[in-house]
Design a protein around this nucleic acid. Structure first.
Lengths: 204, 204, 204, 204
DNA sequence: TTCTAATCGAGACGGTACGTCGGGTCTTATT
DNA sequence: AATAAGACCCGACGTACCGTCTCGATTAGAA
């Protein structure tokens, strides 16, 4: 077992890290993930290659961190770090609103390129996939779980329903359409998904 | 614009094509998609690189064709080329049976590696994605549309439901779990999906 | 020992041969010897590659034959097939005249490219070199031997001189300058060569 | 016009350069120039191809430098870097001695293969030829010029003779025989050349 | 505030694979 | 049977990046 000397994070250059994030996101957006190279990121960031290899094991990890950082920044700007699905008492309306916001985000070009790339890499790279799911996907899905639990408490959803599965009825179709481009994603579509799904979850 | 002279398909070597398919599938299964190289496929198939470049524009296209061919072969062996979802009159039972078979297929290692790889490539390569969807995915989904239409005719499903969207309620979650490894896929899971979804599609 | 079936020369296409000669000479002149390829010759001659491989073992042999043919043609046109060095009785004048003609030929672009190419190939390919020397060079040199022998008979050259060596005193320097581009070749230069050399060959 | 970034010569690996020289010379000697490939040199030298392409534009240039280096090494070993043709007062004897040494060198297999290859390449590649002549050939010939000038000073050679041309009378024939294999090269032959040539250069 | 050790920008290095070119063989249909 | 055409296997080309490895130059924490 070869020990790689752990670099001293306290002396790390914040400027370089930012520049690397920016370069990685910009390149993925401009030339696509496969044509984005470590060398290209380093050159664009005005950084030595070694500085990248010192802190990240692969370009996928660079992009994942850059993307997480982008998300944090966006959340911080919106001032809504502790994100929640609203609870107006009308479950269908709340879900439709959230899904419409998700549609907007999925169509935002700033997000599209990197998240597609990460999803693609994850399909084939199990380790990255786990990290992606744990850090990004599951926290999002947990919000739906919370909201559905609340709905069960008020009787809007049958108590025997597993919320972790139930949420997939409307979340997965949207994800699928987006990832595989099987069909366009619109507000009308997500509204319909919620309608179809909730029929089945509501008590008789 | 330089025109590449179109090769004469009638003189194409069938033996080479088969060998390339086999090599591509074997390598993807053995070393994974990213480490599968055109050079490796050529070497394993006992074929010149040029023979690959003559007929396919990229390794993704090689793999797509190889996979389509694999599917055709499998179907031909099973003697069930005009595939259909059974119609016993019990929609829930029929869907559960089909989804269980799908689970088996998704867990079959012969299919897993190449289809993951193609899905991953499709996320980032729109042209390939379209071909993948058109040649493989949509034909499969159409079978569900047909079965749901039949269910609407017998009154088992509400007539105002769009079958193309309805089918996503149980198909997409399964696909999602498989692709993103968010959770294990089991018979119990698919059965539950069908139950949840059909509640919502059945008449009141 | 694998026997290569000897092709039937009587059925050979004269038209193809001519086309191949023309194409080979043209290409060597236009793009240079290294960039002249068998494939290129075949394409330009409107001939299948196999037709070349059937009759010649290598591109050097094609060019050698093409060049020999070119020489024969030129000689036939000039109507002087049985070539001779003139014998006016004045050895120096005769040699100067012949060398001046040689200078002209060496500077003729039609001859320069192919003969350079053949010389180059010969340096590294002994078999070709022997053929080149035997078919082209030695016959030429023999003419000088004859003329020098005649000069010895008239007493213009010492009888103990070996004509085969003596001729090299003026022929080789010219060849060398041309081949290696060490210095320009002119009439004045060849005249000087003859003067210097004959001093040494003349009786005291 | 794309500018290729000039590599930083101060950081060049001396070990790699030596290994490349050795590999190039060894391969040319073992398999011949045409079968010597950049890939083969790199593999034999244990070096990446790019390291060759970074510093030399072609395999001919690699070989030329390797050969120049070989010559320098040999000269340094012999401790006779400022090489001179001896001047014992007997011009004929001095020239014969030097030419005999040249014959030895031309027949030394370590020198034969690469110098033939370079000569061949030079015939067809003018740029290389100029470099070869300037760096290797002319310095050698200049030694003869010097010796002949000295001979003119002592009256051993006629004052109106151009030494640069005179030297070709014995040097070029030897070179020619060696390059074109028209006849074997021996001490007797070079002695004869000197005799024939000096007759013509000596005063009456 | 100076010293000093780690990080940094830069890029040369040994490699692997790319996509292309051409060599020489073989097959097919045409003459 | 020779031919034009060109697919085939193969080896080398010159290029792009990989991940590792030096090099000064800089820079931040401990002295």
């Amino acid at each position: 077992m070869v020990k790689k000397p752990v670099p001293d994070a306290t002396r790390r250059s914040e400027k370089s890290r930012r520049a690397i994030y920016d370069a990685a996101l910009a390149l993925v957006a401009e030339v696509g993930y496969p044509k984005t190279t470590i060398e290209g990121i380093a050159a664009r960031a005005g950084v030595g290659k070694q500085t990248i290899y010192r802190w990240w094991p692969s370009k996928a990890d660079v992009l994942l961190e850059a993307f997480l950082d982008l998300g944090e920044q966006a959340a911080r700007q919106a001032g809504q770090v502790p994100y929640e699905i609203p609870d107006t008492g009308d479950l269908a309306a709340d879900l439709k609103a959230v899904l419409r916001a998700t549609v907007d985000e999925l169509l935002d070009p700033r997000f599209e390129a990197p998240s597609r790339a990460l999803a693609a890499e994850g399909l084939v790279n199990e380790q990255l996939s786990r990290e992606f799911v744990a850090k990004l996907l599951e926290p999002q899905l947990q919000l739906y779980v919370n909201r559905l639990r609340a709905a069960q408490a008020t009787g809007a959803v049958r108590p025997d329903v597993d919320p972790r599965i139930a949420l997939e009825l409307f979340v997965s179709p949207l994800a699928q359409r987006w990832l595989q481009r099987t069909a366009p994603i619109t507000y009308a579509y997500t509204d319909t998904l919620v309608d179809y799904a909730l029929y089945g979850l509501a008590p008789r």
